[in-house]
Design a protein around this nucleic acid. Structure first.
Length: 268
DNA sequence: ATGGTCGACTTTCGA
């Protein structure tokens, strides 16, 4: 059973529905996880997504902000949406499906709060939200059995390694790369002994990014990126993935998202 | 140069 899973912060699914369609046609994911859909469930473009071949469309949205969605061509055995931090926002959706070799596999789709501009929980409510959110995620995965088959994808809004950002020194105090956030991400990774799948394919000695700011005339020329998007797998799946790609082409499509999609191939 | 650009039922905020 070959399965291709993709994750993409789309920055408004309605503004970029044509890009989603092009991405599906060209990269052919079996499961597609989107973040920042920015649309209330009542206005979600269901028909367009189903027309792309996804029979199963699971959404968790809110008006104007945040929102995640997971589309699947594979029948689902379970769907779960967890509300973190009791703030009424929509940042998680999990789907499960059956496999011949790994039992039931669960794919968690996350959009972690960006955290605002100042890395201080006392003066910046958004940063406190980010810290609390990561804490609740860690708590959740600590409770889950280490033998379970789990995949976590999404925009975690943290670039942990020195080569996950264009300049380690210049970003040390910038939210997304502060030592405190990196420490919290490490705790999250330890909670289920997650494998950072993407870095299995590109060693930490090499620069690797998935996001480039809109505030740059030519993102390819300045190449001031950060690796904010991730795919992690639990230990039972550590040898089930067969390939990975950060798809750079969609970042140059017309009216692009500021994030590039990431693809992961599995054989179960 | 403390800039710059996106998207959202918007004249401002979140990213």
């Amino acid at each position: 059973m070959k399965i291709r899973i993709a994750t993409w912060n789309i920055n408004s699914v309605r503004r970029r529905i044509e890009s989603v369609e092009r991405f599906v046609n060209e990269y052919k994911p079996d499961i597609l996880c989107l973040q920042e859909t920015k649309v209330h469930d009542d206005a979600f473009p269901f028909k367009a997504i189903k027309a792309m071949g996804f029979e199963h469309v699971e959404i968790n949205g809110m008006k104007a902000y945040h929102g995640v969605a997971t589309f699947s061509k594979i029948p689902l055995t379970k769907v779960e949406k967890i509300e973190f931090c009791n703030k009424g926002d929509a940042r998680h959706i999990a789907i499960s499906f059956d496999t011949p070799t790994s039992g039931e596999v669960t794919v968690h789709n996350f959009y972690v709060p960006a955290g605002g501009d100042v890395a201080d929980i006392d003066t910046n409510e958004k940063f406190k939200h980010k810290v609390d959110f990561l804490g609740e995620m860690t708590e959740l995965f600590t409770k889950i059995d280490n033998d379970s088959s789990a995949i976590m994808v999404g925009d975690l809004n943290i670039a942990p390694h020195e080569n996950d950002v264009w300049s380690h020194k210049q970003l040390l105090k910038v939210v997304s790369h502060t030592p405190y956030e990196v420490e919290l991400l490490k705790k999250l990774q330890d909670s289920l002994n997650w494998q950072d799948m993407v870095r299995e394919y590109v060693p930490t000695s090499e620069k690797l990014y998935s996001w480039w700011s809109y505030r740059s005339k030519d993102w390819t020329q300045s190449n001031k990126g950060r690796r904010l998007d991730h795919i992690w797998v639990s230990q039972p799946l550590a040898d089930k993935h067969k390939g990975m790609e950060i798809a750079l082409a969609p970042r140059s499509w017309e009216a692009p998202s500021d994030h590039a999609p990431i693809l992961a191939d599995f054989v179960f």
